[in-house]
Simulated assay, not measured.
Amino acid sequence: MRAILRGDEAPMSELRAISTGLRIPLRILASGKRPSDDSERLGLLFRSVRQTHPNYDVTVERIATFVEAAVRVLPPADRLPLWLDDFVVRDETYEEAARLALLFRSIFCADRIDDPLHQLPQLLDHAGIVTARLRFSQYEGVSLVAENHCFIFVSPRFIGRMLFTFAHELGHIIAHHREGHAPIFERASHIGNFKKHTRSEGFVDAFASNLLLPDTAIARALQTIRDHFQIRSPVIGDLEILFVARYFGVSFDVAARRCEELELLPRGGAASLSDTLRKEYGSPEKRADMIGLPKRLPVRFPPVSEQLGKAVGQAINSGNISIGWAADHFGLSLGEILASHAPAGEL
């Protein structure tokens, strides 16, 4: 590093090693420019983000690099996905969030309207939303719209947390993002923080909660677990909520808060139960394992959505981009690039 700063030449292998070690796209390292400022297409979109991130923020630059590259390889879009036309937000109320959540389910999973949404990342891909993992970042989730393409990025976390973050960012796409709206970068305290949040964040949290935990489905799940364990108490306890959390793929806190919203728990009961489980058992998950509840069903969070992987593969096969260019701009490994555009069944 000292030699390079003195002006010595560096071979490409060294630059790639430094780029990987610092988790900075090679393009940024080589040019010394911020993609969020330099991009002709996205400069204006990310300029407002830079106002709230005055210091260099590598996540902002990685997202700008990713989005600019995605817009280059994806087919041009002359408008937002058609289904978004049906989602007109009348007011940021709990009732409106519930209505929109039911509307989304009726459009994309009408044949399983009350089933768990473990396949939400794939549903978003089917809905025309590009999804990707947000690696090595202080942010939980990012959402934006660029040139009529919708993007959601989620950091690898506990799967229950990731699923709720996907639903939360979908709420932002529906309620707050239109062409030209600044990207939203959210830390952990912004998502699922039922104790303290803005009205807009509360609205998308309510949307996510209703989307992942439909009220009628919760009622059936609670009845199933109470019948199985022959629970006769009129009070809902931690066992039932742990079962709901695992069945629907969310965290205990989200499931407990949803039960509180439905008046199945007294006000403040969700936080109280959560604190008790952490003090007595270490975590709700340990408590669920201790009492022998079924394991969580797997939720597949691909490194990048299928639609983008297919577009990248076509661009590579046609010679428009190289595998190295794709790996650097999208932050993917060589194996992930190859897997993303391999014919079905080949890998």
Rank of each mutant, 00 (worst) to 15 (best):
Q230L: 14
I225C: 06
E336V: 08
A146W: 00
R157L: 08
G345S: 04
H149N: 13
A271L: 08
R99D: 12
G21C: 08
P303G: 07
V204A: 06
E40I: 06
L264T: 02
S272V: 10
T52L: 11
R220N: 07
V204G: 01
S209E: 10
C109T: 14
A344T: 08
T52P: 01
L5V: 12
K33I: 05
R287L: 09
N320K: 15
R187E: 07
L102N: 13
D289N: 09
S36A: 15
E140V: 11
A344S: 12
G313V: 08
R99G: 06
A315P: 01
S137V: 02
G292V: 06
T276I: 10
E179M: 05
P303E: 03
R62C: 03
S274K: 14
S318Q: 11
H118G: 03
P75A: 02
L134M: 09
G7E: 03
H177P: 03
D238P: 11
T93N: 04
V71I: 13
A217I: 12
P121W: 01
I337M: 02
R62W: 01
R232W: 00
H149Q: 12
F185C: 09
R278Y: 07
F203I: 09
R187H: 09
M12E: 10
I231Q: 10
S200A: 15
L273A: 10
L170R: 00
A245D: 02
H126Y: 05
L212T: 01
R50A: 10
I337V: 15
L103A: 10
G268I: 10
H118S: 04
L163V: 02
A64K: 08
A69N: 06
P75I: 02
A3C: 10
G43Y: 04
V73H: 03
E147Q: 15
E336P: 01
I191C: 06
T216C: 04
V142C: 03
E285V: 10
Y56F: 15
D289T: 13
L100S: 00
Y139N: 13
N210L: 02
I218P: 00
R246C: 08
P303K: 00
L120K: 01
V312W: 00
Q230M: 11
I323D: 00
F164W: 00
H341N: 13
G160K: 05
A271G: 14
F108S: 01
A98T: 02
P266N: 11
E263F: 11
R90C: 10
V60D: 04
G309V: 03
M162G: 05
E169T: 13
G128T: 09
F252R: 12
A219R: 15
L124N: 05
R157Q: 14
R232G: 14
T20P: 03
R257L: 08
D205C: 11
D85E: 13
G192M: 00
F194D: 09
A64W: 01
R258G: 01
P76E: 04
I18L: 15
S209G: 11
A182F: 05
